[in-house]
């Protein structure tokens, strides 16, 4: 029983981060119909930014959350305005390839600047944890989860209440109608792409607290962002949150599988990705618009 509770808690803690990773990816995909392969690279840059601020100026990672957001937002805004916008009306494949190229560029710049060595952000509170009813909870992961929840909450409020947020949602529903009512679509797209990058940066900051930082760290998270989006449905904040938590929990339990068929020993820790992906395939086939999803084109 206690193992079950521990897995559940681990799953929720991991799921909170995944929700933030997926949030920006989901907005870009849902609103602009772009599969942003550079999302993992933005995340990696956010993590390095946090690392550098911590290593050079002892800035607490939680304090660098807004810095990551602003810097990556600006980068995303510029990339959308000056690069992606040039091929905005090209077939989706073209933009997919462009984001792949951008991802390669960023990862390799990071490789030159920071080399391929593993870096870590080790704060005074890094190893600390507490125990409730036999369930161990690391403080950093708990704070990370709380920060993740706060970020999704802020995003949801901003998207529904602010003028820009409403313009974004209008654009995602009907570009033509939004344009007619005076929304500058190119500007909105730049903001959405900036948001996607900014949220990836924030996720990178949170991830740097619990995982090693290296130039290739974004790739596994990119794939998980895909899965979370499919689980939660596209372009919705609560979808990303629920999808993230579901994925985190499924993965945590998958890790515990351990059995033998004939001479073949099967251990969940080696198969956790496969199990998560099989879940993904089943969800895709049974409910192609996601658990929370509404029908989208």
């Amino acid at each position: 029983m206690h193992l079950f509770a521990q897995d559940l808690v681990n799953g929720i803690l991991a799921g909170g981060i995944l929700a933030v990773v997926a949030l920006g990816f989901s907005l870009v995909w849902g609103i602009m119909n772009i599969i942003n392969l550079a999302h993992g690279a933005f995340l990696m840059l956010g993590a390095y930014l946090t690392y550098q601020l911590f290593a050079s100026f002892h800035v607490d990672p939680f304090l660098s959350l807004p810095i990551s957001f602003v810097v990556l937002f600006a980068l995303g805004y510029l990339i959308q305005t000056y690069l992606i916008n040039w091929v905005a009306r090209a077939p989706i494949l073209t933009i997919f390839l462009l984001t792949f190229g951008l991802s390669l560029l960023m990862v390799n710049i990071a490789l030159i600047v920071w080399t391929g060595d593993q870096r870590g952000v080790t704060t005074a509170y890094s190893g600390a944890n507490f125990t409730i009813a036999d369930v161990t909870v690391p403080w950093t992961k708990l704070f990370t989860l709380l920060a993740a929840l706060a970020i999704t909450g802020i995003m949801q409020l901003w998207l529904t209440r602010s003028k820009t947020g409403r313009a974004i949602r209008a654009t995602s529903m009907d570009i033509g109608a939004a344009q007619l009512s005076g929304v500058r679509v190119a500007h909105i797209y730049a903001i959405v792409y900036g948001l996607g990058a900014g949220l990836a940066g924030v996720a990178g900051t949170l991830i740097s607290l619990s995982y090693a930082v290296n130039p290739g760290m974004g790739d596994p998270f990119l794939i998980k962002a895909f899965v979370v989006c499919v689980l939660g449905g596209l372009g919705s904040v609560e979808g990303a949150l629920i999808g993230g938590l579901v994925y985190g929990i499924v993965e945590a339990f998958a890790t515990q599988l351990d059995f033998t068929i004939g001479t073949q020993h099967i251990s969940g820790s080696g198969l956790q990705d496969a199990i998560a992906l099989v879940v993904l395939l089943i969800v895709l086939i049974v409910r192609p618009t996601g658990i929370m999803g509404k029908a989208t084109a």
């Binding site: 073949q264 990705d273 496969a274 395939l281 086939i285 192609p288």
Partner: peptide, 25 residues
């Protein structure tokens, strides 16, 4: 499945197959 959903499902197949093979003695 269509569009991006098909793309992701196929990615899932490739990754899952890789994981499965990595666990087959």
């Amino acid at each position: 499945l269509k569009g991006h959903y098909f793309a992701i499902a196929t990615l899932g197949i490739a990754l899952a197959l890789s994981d499965i093979v990595a666990n087959l003695d």
